[in-house]
Amino acid sequence: MHEGIPDFAMPPEDQVRRAADALRMLADPTRIKILWALLQGETSVACLAELVGAAPTAVSQHLAKLRLAGLVEGRREGTFVYYTAENARVRRLLTEALGESADLPR
């Protein structure tokens, strides 16, 4: 049936899985707030917890999932870990999720 569609190709399975994981990460309001805050720049778990109104342990758990999905990265400095968002990808995801009226940081 699909033989009639010229140049039809399904994306590779690992790419589909990464996309599904990234979209699943946006299904939680706290994670959206965390990503939004990280678009402002690098910050710590304690600061993120204050910004999003959640306990630091909950924010740490969310960050672990976001890191596994490839949406955030952590940088260790002594006993602290500072997180950043993969700006271009996160910005595109949040723009789509929040709509065009969202005032995303540059």
Rank of each mutant, 00 (worst) to 15 (best):
S44E: 10
A46L: 15
P56L: 09
I32F: 11
L23C: 11
L26G: 02
R24P: 06
L68W: 04
I32K: 04
I34W: 01
W36P: 05
D28L: 08
V52W: 10
E50G: 15
T43M: 12
A27H: 11
G41D: 15
L63K: 04
R24Q: 14
E73P: 02
A37Q: 11
A27Q: 15
E73G: 06
L38A: 06
D28K: 07
H62F: 06
W36A: 11
E73C: 04
K33W: 07
E42V: 07
M25F: 03
L51S: 10
V45A: 03
R31G: 01
E73M: 05
A37S: 15
G53W: 12
L23S: 11
L38S: 03
A27I: 05
L39W: 03
Q61W: 09
L71F: 03
R31V: 04
A64T: 14
M25W: 01
L23H: 15
L51K: 15
A37G: 10
A58D: 05
R24K: 14
L63G: 02
K33T: 06
A69W: 01
A55G: 10
A58F: 06
L51A: 15
L26N: 04
R67L: 07
T43P: 05
E50W: 05
T30R: 14
L35Y: 02
L48K: 02
L26D: 01
D28I: 03
A37P: 05
A49V: 08
D28G: 09
A54M: 08
G70P: 07
A49Y: 01
E73T: 05
A49F: 01
E42A: 13
V59W: 00
G41Q: 11
V59T: 02
C47Y: 04
G41T: 11
I32R: 10
M25A: 11
G53F: 10
Q40I: 08
A54H: 10
E50F: 08
R67D: 07
P29W: 10
V59K: 00
R31P: 03
L66Q: 00
W36H: 14
W36M: 15
L38D: 01
R67K: 13
L63Q: 02
Q40P: 03
K33E: 11
R24E: 13
C47D: 12
L51W: 03
P29L: 09
P56I: 06
T43K: 08
G74A: 12
M25P: 01
S60M: 07
C47G: 07
L66P: 00
L51I: 13
E42M: 14
Q61Y: 04
K65N: 14
R24Y: 09
E73D: 15
H62D: 08
A37T: 09
L23D: 04
A54G: 04
T57D: 07
R31H: 08
L68C: 11
A69N: 02
K33C: 11
L51Q: 14
A64R: 14
L66T: 00
L39Q: 10
E50L: 12
P56G: 07
C47W: 08
E73V: 06
R31Y: 05
L48V: 06
H62V: 02
S44Q: 10
G70D: 04
P56R: 03
K65Y: 05
L48Q: 05
I34C: 04
W36E: 13
M25T: 00
V45S: 01
S60N: 12
P56N: 06
A46S: 14
L66C: 00
Q40T: 12
S44W: 05
A55H: 15
A55W: 06
A69S: 02
E42H: 09
A54L: 07
V72F: 03
L48P: 01
G74N: 07
L71V: 03
